[in-house]
Design a protein around this nucleic acid. Structure first.
Lengths: 334, 334
DNA sequence: ATGAAAGCGCTAACAA
DNA sequence: TTGTTAGCGCTTTCAT
């Protein structure tokens, strides 16, 4: 269906030179007589020649200038922000991004990684849902890999992680110092790496303050904002309701906001992740915010360090979080 | 820096067969004696062989199973939703997405397209900012291309477009039927294809209702939510302020919301694009909503039709919009 | 400065 | 059923 495109041979024939000369012209660097170069360039223009990168990449020692990015789902703003940061850094290095979505399925993730390896990517950036490190299931060789946001417990690769613990701690500290003693936790899957980490921090921080961890106040398995809304409504209906809520991520926070608004409740709220329009809320809210695109950018930067030959020990790079009080900004007159 | 990976030759040597047999095993389809196949598969496992896709793709008549996607910026939720839809469809066809961001720069866009052509993509999906059709600046041959969301005025390619006119019309009709006669327009760049289209519709619809188009009520060149906020504040400060505002896109809508909230104004608001948390607003708002991922999905679907050999006339595929009244949902008791 | 030719890893045609 | 081989388009010696 695709008419065969002109090759260097076609250009060479037309310009009356050898293919080697065409290659030299295309690659700018070499010494070619200006007059010859002009003839070749004209032939290129006339034929509409584009070098076949696949053929170039096939030659030994050539890079593909391609980074593979494995993410959950492009529709997820977190993932797409990571992709954006990674893409920016890759672009600066004249690399292109091959992106695949796993939909959180481990087999899909492995298939995607295999596919990218087969396509000879120069490096791999992975937001993984696999409990096993990639080199346990796939022969990776010495292909540089950087895990982003989460990573299997023991593995030999670099990782760029959010400072989850500090984030959870800062939010809970704020709630505690505001006088709260009964702080609920609203989360999703307890086996998801990030969720498990944050839940652990929640328990740890409460205990650090000498507060009991009441299982009644921990609501897990909320997978949508609607789930979270119902769970929060249920929590607030208890005999001894919480006076504050910590939500594990932005979906949970949305649900909690809906519940609080619907019930006209004054329960305090803090949550992980930023949310749009938070400033327009009629009550205050503490958010653990950070730059998701930094995760991608720092991941890509570290990947290029490896690609450039850095063989040092695996690094863990932290992306900081910040506690931000939001809401009521435009309600000061009310 | 990358140790050389095992090739089919290595596998063949180890299994004591010819490379042709290894190729047959890897490509499943052919007739290979089960015993031979087993030997080869073991050799593959032992060597950790991954077929080099670049070499495969180089053979004549082979596809690369790659779709190039050219977008503004992955950080933009609209773009990433388009990418998500396109990626889903591409995945169903076992194709992978090569994604590049133009940052709205025409030269970057052209460079990216050239790069994707060089990489032998099977098709190209473009959210373009170029006023010229791609085949006027780049030799494309018969590579299938589908424009998404916007397209140069005259070109020979398929396009998937939002029904902008109907969207603007539905919102303005609603405002007019609510009794509004002075409806302001808050927009961005008047030369951006989408913005120009919507502004034209605005004028057209007002005139259709026999309403004057007051230039005083048209505020262009707002590029951020902050710009829009200030512009709306200025608009409302006029001697004869508008009684309603139409905002060209989500950033403008955010700014307008901020302005309205800050001024505690009851000016009506309608806008293009959905926004998160709209239901939590203390006032009603009419939004022109649609599925951005549908743009990507339908674009990819049409692209595959072309890849599959459809040579019919260029099609314009419309993605519908819907007017949605939002806000106050959780304020019913107030 | 330039042409000729080898070879990258693979698939497919041909031979056996 | 299986091995051998030509050749995809390119880069890169090696001659000239």
């Amino acid at each position: 269906m695709q008419a065969t495109r002109p090759t260097m041979r076609d250009v060479a024939l037309r310009a009356g030179v050898g293919v080697g000369t065409v290659s030299r012209v295309v690659n700018k660097n070499d010494k070619v007589r200006p007059e010859t170069r002009a003839r070749v360039e004209q032939a290129i223009a006339e034929t509409g020649f584009h070098r076949n990168e696949l053929a170039r990449m096939l030659r030994p020692g050539q890079i593909t200038a391609t980074i593979g990015l494995v993410i959950d789902d492009l529709a997820n703003p977190f993932s797409s922000a990571v992709a954006s940061g990674a893409g920016r850094v890759a672009g600066q290095r004249d690399h292109v991004l091959l992106i695949g979505s796993t939909e959180r399925d481990v087999e899909t993730e492995r298939d995607l990684i295999r596919e990218f390896v087969r396509r000879q990517v120069d490096g791999l950036l992975i937001i993984s849902n696999d409990l096993k490190p990639v080199d346990e299931t796939i022969t990776i060789g010495d292909l540089p890999i950087v895990y982003i946001d989460r990573a299997p417990v023991a593995n030999r690769y670099d990782r760029v992680m959010l400072d989850n613990h500090t984030g959870v701690k800062s939010a809970l500290n704020r709630l505690v110092s505001d006088g709260h003693r009964r702080i609920a936790y609203v989360g999703g899957s307890p086996t998801a790496i990030t969720g498990a980490t944050r839940l652990r921090s929640y328990r740890q921080v409460l205990q650090g303050h000498g507060l009991p961890v009441d299982p009644e106040l921990v609501s897990m398995h909320n997978y949508t904002a609607d789930d979270a809304r119902e769970s929060v409504i249920a929590l607030l209906g208890r005999r001894r309701p919480p006076t504050a809520i910590f939500s594990d991520n932005n979906r949970m926070t949305y649900g909690a906001i809906q519940a609080l608004t619907a019930l006209d409740s004054r329960t305090a709220l803090a949550g992980f992740d930023d949310i749009e329009l938070a400033d327009l809320l009629p009550f205050e809210i503490d958010l653990v915010v950070y730059s998701p695109s930094d995760l991608g950018a720092k991941g890509a930067a570290q990947l290029f360090r490896r690609i450039d030959g850095d063989t040092g020990a695996a690094r863990t790079i932290r992306v900081p979080t910040r506690l931000d009080r939001r809401g009521r900004r435009f309600h000061t007159g009310a």
